[in-house]
C-alpha cells in the first residue's frame, strides 16, 4: 500500500471495548466442599460425571461483535473494534431460536473517514468472517452506517451482491489480504 488513506485515526483503548460480563460462573463454594468431602469415597460410586443440564445460549449482538471486532484493519495494526469501525450498538441479530427458521444478522460499519476507499474491503472481510463462523441458517447483511460514507449506496450494493462477493473471493490477491486481516481473530 503506497499511501495510507487515513494516517491518523482515533483509537479506542482495547480494554474498554464491550465484552460479555459475568461469563464465568463461579462454582458454588459449598458444593465444592461437599464434592471434596465425598469425591474419593467408595460409598455409592457410579463412574459417570454429572451432566449439568444448562439452557441454550442464543446468538446475540455481543457474540457477533466478538467475532468481527478482532479483525485487523488493512492499513493499521489495529482491530476494527479499536478503530470503532464496528460498534456493538450497530449490530442487529434476529435469532428465531428454532433451527429450522431463517435468522438474520445485520452489521452496520462506520468507516474512519467518509471517503475511505477501503470500506468495501473491510466490509468484505467482515462478510467472509461471518460466513465462515455463522451457521448457514443466518442471512448476513453488511451495510455502511447511514451518512458515514460518500458513496454509501454503491458500497452497500457491492457488499451484498452474492455474485460480486463470490467473484471477489475467487481473486487470490484479495483473498490474501483478507486472510491477513482475519489472522488476528483466533
Amino acid at each position: 500500500m503506497a499511501d495510507v488513506i487515513n494516517a491518523n485515526p482515533t483509537v479506542l483503548d482495547a480494554s474498554l471495548l464491550p465484552t460479555r460480563h459475568g461469563a464465568i460462573v463461579e462454582k458454588d463454594e459449598e458444593s465444592v466442599v461437599h464434592q471434596e468431602l465425598t469425591e474419593l469415597s467408595l460409598d455409592g460410586i457410579t463412574y459417570t460425571d454429572s451432566e449439568g443440564e444448562s439452557e441454550d445460549e442464543g446468538f446475540d449482538a455481543q457474540e457477533i461483535y466478538d467475532l468481527i471486532s478482532t479483525i485487523s484493519d488493512p492499513e493499521h495494526p489495529l482491530t476494527l473494534g479499536q478503530l470503532a469501525v464496528v460498534n456493538l450498538s450497530d449490530i442487529k441479530v434476529i435469532d428465531p431460536q428454532d433451527k429450522n427458521h431463517i435468522g438474520e444478522v445485520i452489521v452496520r460499519i462506520t468507516p474512519t473517514i467518509t471517503h475511505c476507499s477501503l470500506a468495501t474491503l473491510i466490509g468484505l472481510g467482515i462478510r467472509v468472517r461471518l460466513e465462515r463462523c455463522l451457521p448457514p441458517r443466518f442471512r448476513i447483511l453488511v451495510l455502511l452506517k447511514e451518512g458515514s460514507h460518500q458513496s454509501e449506496n454503491q458500497v452497500n450494493k457491492q457488499l451484498n451482491d452474492k455474485e460480486r462477493v463470490s467473484a471477489a473471493c475467487e481473486n487470490d490477491q484479495l483473498l490474501k489480504v483478507i486472510s491477513h486481516m482475519l489472522a488476528t481473530c483466533a
Partner: peptide
C-alpha cells in the same frame, strides 16, 4: 457453529478459521 453452547461455537469458529487458512500463503 450452531451448537447451543457459545464457547463451543467459538471454538468451532477458531477451528474452522485455522483450516480455512491452511495452505494459504
Amino acid at each position: 457453529l450452531d451448537d447451543p453452547k457459545r464457547s463451543i461455537r467459538r471454538l468451532a469458529c477458531d477451528c474452522r478459521q485455522a483450516y480455512f487458512e491452511l495452505g494459504v500463503p
